[in-house]
Computed example of a mutant assay.
Amino acid sequence: MSKAVPPVRFHALIPGQRPPARADRSALGTLPIRAWRYCEAVTTAAGFGWHMFPPTDLRLLFDGQRIWWQCNDVGEDWMLLDDAAQFPCFSATFDAAAPEAIRGFSPPFLTALPEPGVVQIWTGLLARSAPGWSLLVRSPPNVPQMPGIEVYEGLVETDAWFGPIFTNVRITRTDEPITLRPEWPLVLAQPVPRPAYADAWLNGAEISRGFETMGDAEWAGYDSAVAAPIRDGAYRPGHYAVAVRKRRKAEEAGSCPFTAGREHSPSVLQAT
């Protein structure tokens, strides 16, 4: 039997780092219990992707002009990040494992970008996604964010480009250290089919203005989703969640998109 194609394969290269983990639908236990029980939209968003964690305890300090850093692997002294810095001892480990032509090209752990207070952080990961799929690297949805930073989002076509998975963060406070801990996710990677962000697909959105654009099909859909459950006395908290779970269960009983030897892009997203 052919081996199934995984949606993504992560390569964790820094020794001892926490590997990526499937995102948790409870947002790591931080969602209110009512949202966990009844709000399928919130829990689905929270569980959509894989959490990626800092490879070590990392502290960053922005003094308004320069960025300083320290981590447990190199002691307590603050070091100036004036260009780029390797993860402690990693470049020698990389060169010992890499083919000769690639030695000396280990990814930097931290890079100070030209914009004030902006630093690029390597997750310690490389990634290869299934054909036709990319990875959206973003701040984890519905998870309390680490204070003092803003995460830039990036969409990487990892089915064709195999390289380090970085994230760029902006330090939003000065003269006070921020701490990134390996037990708390820094970013989330979400699988996105390439046609979903093609211009031909996104430019095809339609905007209907006014009630005169609402036809029988639209009013029937609204009635089914909103009015009928209340009118018929069938409304219960979480009725949307029940409907979505039933639909998902029926769909998952069919074929999986990641089957061996088959490239997949949802036909509904085929841009022309």
Score class of each variant (00 low, 15 high):
Ala189His: 04
Arg209Ala: 14
Leu188Asn: 14
Val143His: 10
Phe258Asp: 08
Pro229Val: 01
Cys256Phe: 04
Glu76Trp: 03
Phe62Glu: 00
Tyr240Lys: 06
Pro237Gln: 06
Pro164Arg: 01
Pro54Ile: 09
Arg34Tyr: 09
Val143Asp: 03
Ile207Met: 13
Met1Trp: 05
Val268His: 08
Ser267Tyr: 02
Pro131Ala: 13
Pro144Asp: 10
Val169Phe: 02
Ala220Val: 07
Tyr152Asn: 12
Ala45Arg: 05
Ala21Arg: 13
Phe48Thr: 06
Met214His: 03
Ala225Glu: 11
Ala260His: 04
Tyr235Met: 11
Asn72Phe: 05
Thr213Lys: 05
Arg22Ile: 12
Arg194Asn: 15
Leu180Glu: 03
Trp78Thr: 06
Glu153Ala: 15
Glu157Arg: 04
Glu263Asp: 14
Asp77Met: 07
Ala12Arg: 09
Asp223Gly: 06
Ile67Pro: 00
Gly132His: 04
Thr111Tyr: 01
Val192His: 09
Pro144Val: 11
Leu113His: 09
Phe258Lys: 00
Gly233Glu: 03
Trp68Gly: 07
Thr179Phe: 09
Thr111Gln: 14
Thr123His: 08
Ala23Met: 03
Ala92Asp: 15
Glu251His: 08
Trp50Pro: 05
Val137Lys: 02
Val119Trp: 02
Met214Phe: 03
Gln190His: 10
Thr158Asn: 04
Pro266Glu: 08
Ala228Cys: 00
Gly16Asn: 10
Gly204Tyr: 00
Asp63Leu: 11
Asn168Ala: 15
Val268Ser: 15
Gly261Arg: 01
Asp63Tyr: 06
Trp219Ala: 12
Gly64Ile: 02
Leu269Phe: 03
Arg236His: 12
Val137Trp: 06
Ala27Val: 10
Ile207Ser: 07
